[in-house]
């Protein structure tokens, strides 16, 4: 039961992170290493607003997501966009960006562990396991968000353009889709998703300036397993890894220390056996 709950929650969080990461990679070929750093920034924003300023927790979450999105767009405009076509440079720039976020957070909040209060307290028991309402709430919000993202991508004109751009950007250009505008919008969505993940996860975890590293690695494993650029793949792989992680943590002695290595092992295995991942898209060679 514990495994099931943890698996579901971890899986759905990973799905949110990985889909955001996949989206911006698909549309603009940006490998955003700072993706999970945005998630950390959002979590700290909430901590600052709700604990230090004393704002209503819900309000501070919304503010945090908005703030992180704006921050993401600014970073895109002034840092990433000018070097967008240079993959190596983007990689280095986003790594640097993540470290900047980390160091600034260290300065402002020190390295101490911080916590954010639950939005709703209380728990109920299923099969002898405590389930906090907060866990349920987090899971619910994540599911609704995933549904909204799915709707946006599959049922709207913007979603169609995003998918077209992700699959073949040259042809998408030929259909009149504006590449730089779409990249900007997608980055906004992507960072907002990272921010939202941070927002809903903040009450369930302890905050520290290094909290972006572990999810980054696991998220990368998810994206590799699901197939780079495939939204469906990210979704399925996120739950596979979420459950694997839960299984390892609960069933293997001292399993908590193995989390990262399990993710990396899966990543390496996938790369060796099936480099395109579960639902990999083999990209049309760009001439």
């Amino acid at each position: 039961m514990n495994i099931l709950i943890t698996g579901l929650i971890t899986g759905s969080m990973l799905a949110l992170l990985a889909i955001g990461f996949s989206l911006i990679f698909g549309v603009a070929r940006i490998v955003n290493i700072a993706h999970t750093a945005f998630y950390m920034v959002a979590a700290y924003c909430i901590y600052y607003l709700s604990v230090r300023v004393g704002l209503n927790p819900l309000l501070s979450m919304l503010t945090a997501v908005a703030a992180v999105t704006v921050l993401g767009l600014l970073v895109y405009k002034f840092l990433i966009d000018p070097i967008r076509e240079h993959e190596g440079a983007v990689l280095i720039a986003t790594i640097a960006l993540a470290m900047v976020f980390q160091e600034v957070t260290l300065r402002l909040f020190t390295g101490d562990y911080r916590t954010v209060d639950f939005l709703i307290t209380g728990f109920f028991t299923v099969g002898g396991v405590k389930v906090f309402y907060q866990q349920l709430l987090t899971f619910g919000v994540v599911l609704v968000t995933l549904g909204a993202v799915w709707f946006l991508l599959m049922k709207t004109r913007l979603g169609l353009a995003i998918r077209s751009m992700a699959e073949d950007r040259e042809v998408a250009n030929l259909m009149g889709m504006n590449e730089s505008r779409l990249a900007m919008i997608t980055l906004g969505i992507s960072v907002a998703l990272a921010g939202l993940t941070g927002a809903v996860l903040a009450p369930l975890t302890v905050l520290n300036p290094y909290m972006w590293m572990e999810p980054l690695i696991i998220m990368m494993a998810v994206v590799v397993l699901g197939g780079l650029g495939s939204i469906k793949g990210s979704f399925v792989a996120a739950f596979i890894l979420g459950f694997t992680e839960a299984l390892v943590v609960f069933l293997v002695p001292k399993g908590a220390f193995l989390k990262g290595s399990v993710a990396l092992t899966i990543m390496i295995l996938v790369l060796l056996i099936r480099p395109e991942g579960l639902f990999g898209v083999s990209f049309e060679e760009e001439r």
Binding site: L160, A161, R163, S164, E167, D168, V171, V281, E284
Partner: peptide, 14 residues
């Protein structure tokens, strides 16, 4: 160069 992952209708709408 169709969008291979999309349906025929989605391609046309694109």
């Amino acid at each position: 160069r169709p969008f291979r992952e999309m349906t025929v209708l989605e391609n046309l709408m694109a």
